[in-house]
Design a protein around this nucleic acid. Structure first.
Lengths: 313, 313
DNA sequence: CATATCAATGAATACGATTCATAAGTCTCT
DNA sequence: AGAGACTTATGAATCGTATTCATTGATATG
């Protein structure tokens, strides 16, 4: 089909990112390019169509009418492409197998559930499971063949294991709205002295706040555990202690004044999330599709997360 | 939307061309690239998906199952893109106006009619017309504002006029199946000596066979005219003379042995078709869309035509 | 008002798609 | 069978252009 169009999928991908982030620089991170690159892309498109596509709105940008047209196109097209690429993947080898997921991070339930539903639809032949219970060395599970993916935040170098970066997120301190510490904009290690820390029932080394902030400062608050995120929040709200949770799940509770969130340290406490697999299973098409849609749905639904550079391979 | 895909629209465009032409080199002409470029593109895609996309079938190629998946994707996507680009075009200026078409070439009716129907649907605001009758200087009509496009085969340099190349086609001699000349594979100028030439009712200079072949050789056969292509074919079939017509319209008649077609000269007699407009109207979005879909539908429906390089601008 | 963060832009760069040159395969015709 | 006219495939060279770099001007925030 002939076409005088200079439009390419790369444009559509950045358009979609622009729409989702509302900012050129955030969109740039999302598509792993510089802000400048996206600015140039936008300019080329606007010249080509003779129409503004984005409008500066204060700090950020906003799509114009024309931009929205292109975004709906982008959505449809990118989805169609992913669908047929899935079909192609199914035609190649390794199109079936198992995807047994180990979660190091309890809060990941939030985004994992809808993701697993979608995946089950797209890959009915793949045996999808969540392997439950606590595991001291989840990576070993991979090597023993007891699991296929570990979702966690530590990136330990080990032969035959590859870590696929998902995203970076901030961990915020969660307080009851009446808590005295609410006065401080930023909490530091010694602010936790004498407080009760409410966490998931996992070893200390697995809790970023303790490992990276409190322990180095020699602060050792009391601990109390709960299995579910809502239970932790409930305890916090009823003034039984402080918690540290990913920012994305807090938004609703904070907005309704159920709890208050505060940054930890002047830079904030950040953690990276990886999906780790055997090098061998990393090549499986359904695994790659799982990772792509995982990132997509996370970016779409989780606020305040930051893309990570894809692993060089 | 994140994507590990290296797929780009350029790939989809060549896929579509590959499917329509069944040959890498013909597809290359269609998308204005070299055969080598397309070969490389195909290889990249096959490596990426780990699947063959085309299969060599003797001289030409054939799409595999995977290739067909991609082609249906390509069709859908490219169509969607054209649709939204039309929408964008309508949002810019010059989105309405008139498109009055002058035909220098009678046979163009064949492909112009469905094209005009499609155009009318897409651009209801544009006043679409076929200006009828014979015009000695159709380009002048453009300058006088009596028409907007001239579709013809001569490319006369004139200030303020731009010629948009459509395609190149071959003109074949058409004989009655029993005609003595059927024995020759190729007809030359002197073969026409003493024959009756059946043409459209236009001046000699407008008839490529006469202007480029017979006149230079000093051959001057009798002439007889008919308005419609079917009428000409009817006269030929009933042995009233020979005609010279574009190859594309002949296929059905030749296959049913209604008439016989022969090449004219060892290289064949070829003619280029252009759409000419004022430079000013060339910028109008609906005109550009008209040209794009004209080329597309011609390539899709007309056999044996060859793309021309787009005019440099 | 200083600082941080944003988008825009021109020039330099680097990457990769395309071309070039060539080889190898396929069909047709004599 | 062999010549010729077609194809497609492939590695190396080239060229175009998308991206980055470096900088500026805007906009918000404390």
């Amino acid at each position: 089909m002939t076409s005088l169009s200079l439009l390419e999928l790369r444009h559509l991908r950045t358009l979609a990112a622009l729409d989702e982030t509302g900012s050129v620089s955030r969109a740039a991170k999302r598509v792993h390019l510089t802000q400048s690159a996206l600015s140039h892309q936008i300019k080329v498109l606007q010249n080509h169509y003779g129409l503004p596509i984005v409008r500066r709105q204060g700090q950020n940008i906003e799509l114009t009418e024309a931009g929205k047209h292109l975004v709906t196109l982008a959505r449809r097209v990118l989805e169609e492409i992913q669908a047929t690429e899935r079909n192609l993947a199914k035609m190649s080898e390794h199109a079936s197998g198992s995807l047994r997921i180990v979660l190091e991070c309890h809060t990941c339930f939030d985004w994992l559930m809808p993701l697993m539903d979608a995946f089950r639809q797209n890959w009915p032949e793949v045996e999808l499971d969540l392997v439950s219970g606590f595991h001291s060395d989840p990576i070993q599970l991979l090597e023993e063949g007891g699991a296929d993916v570990v979702i966690g935040s530590e990136q330990v170098e080990r032969r035959g294991i590859v870590h696929h970066p998902l995203f970076r997120f901030e961990i915020l301190a969660v307080l009851a709205p009446e808590h005295p510490l609410r006065a401080k904009k930023i909490l530091h290690a010694r602010d936790f002295d004498g407080e009760t820390l409410i966490t998931y029932p996992v070893p200390e080394e697995r809790i970023d706040l303790i490992r990276n902030v409190l322990k180095p400062a020699g602060v050792q608050p009391e601990r109390r555990t709960a299995e579910l995120t809502v239970a932790i929040l409930q305890l916090v709200a009823s003034r039984r202690g402080i918690a540290a949770l990913p920012s994305w799940g807090l938004k609703n509770y904070v907005e309704h004044d159920y709890v208050t969130a505060r940054r930890i340290g002047s830079q904030g406490l950040w953690s990276d999330l990886y999906a780790s697999t055997l090098a061998e299973t990393a090549a499986r098409p359904y695994l790659r599709d799982f990772l792509v849609t995982a990132r997509n749905t996370c970016f779409a639904t989780l606020d305040g997360i930051i893309p990570l550079e894809p692993a060089e391979q």
